[in-house]
Amino acid sequence: MKPSLGLRAGAVSLLIFVVFIAAWYLATGAGPGAATVDPAYAKLVGAAAAGGGKSAMPGPDVVAATLAKHLADPFFDRGPNDKGIGIQLLFSIGRVFLGFGLAMLVAIPLGFVIGLSPLMQRALDPFIQVLKPISPLAWMPLALYTIKDSAASSIFVIFVCSLWPMLINTAFGVASVRREWLNVARTLECRPLRMAFRVVLPAAAPTIVTGMRISIGIAWLVIVAAEMLVGGTGIGYFVWNEWNNLSIANVVVAIVMIGLIGMALDQGLAFAQRKVSWVE
């Protein structure tokens, strides 16, 4: 009997992972070489780099050890430049949730208005079309100047970048609620609020949650860049700080963590999507 598709796919995934790790190990560990360093450059960068041809690129063993060290004590706090990776991640997640939550509060009601009113849809369309393609980071100087707080500014940037997919999807979902269902509610003399919550919202919910899923993905992409820019705390800052320390192992660990958290956020909304979806 053939093993199930899931089992076979898992085996292939594992194989790819092993091959990748092996290749990585060979590429970083096998060639210590005798690359000479320019003495002037060695003076500039200091002893660590001048120590010889040892590559700054860590092998998988070094990264695994670093990862284990971080996971053993993720929440330590020894001053502004030395915080555990867990604390940094929590800062980033907190900012994403705040910005994303604020965007939800604006995008879903506004999306309802746009979806229900062809007039508002036409009137707001040019603004949305122009604002949507602006890189959220382009707002950063404006935010820093007006808000005068770097943490709040990065939350604002998350807000801006989460807004559009949710707004557009909500408006689309609301506008495409089947006319029949609205007619059912109308013949039952439904009040507008009951209509909105009992008919329009559940009918549009799958589309709205899809928009939320796109938004949280973008927000997680943007927060890293925003924190690199404003500094202070957060996983983006951590990455940039470790780059300045030339600790590539820490950078790689952070990259892995960013990927895992991003996947968790996405899966959370995928779960919500399954909860609200319906079949006709």
């Binding site: 029949e180 059912v184 319906w278």
Partner: peptide
């Protein structure tokens, strides 16, 4: 005045 629609028009999530 109750209406019975051509395509049943039931709310599929209920």
């Amino acid at each position: 005045r109750a209406v019975i629609f051509q395509g049943h028009a039931l709310l599929p999530w209920l």
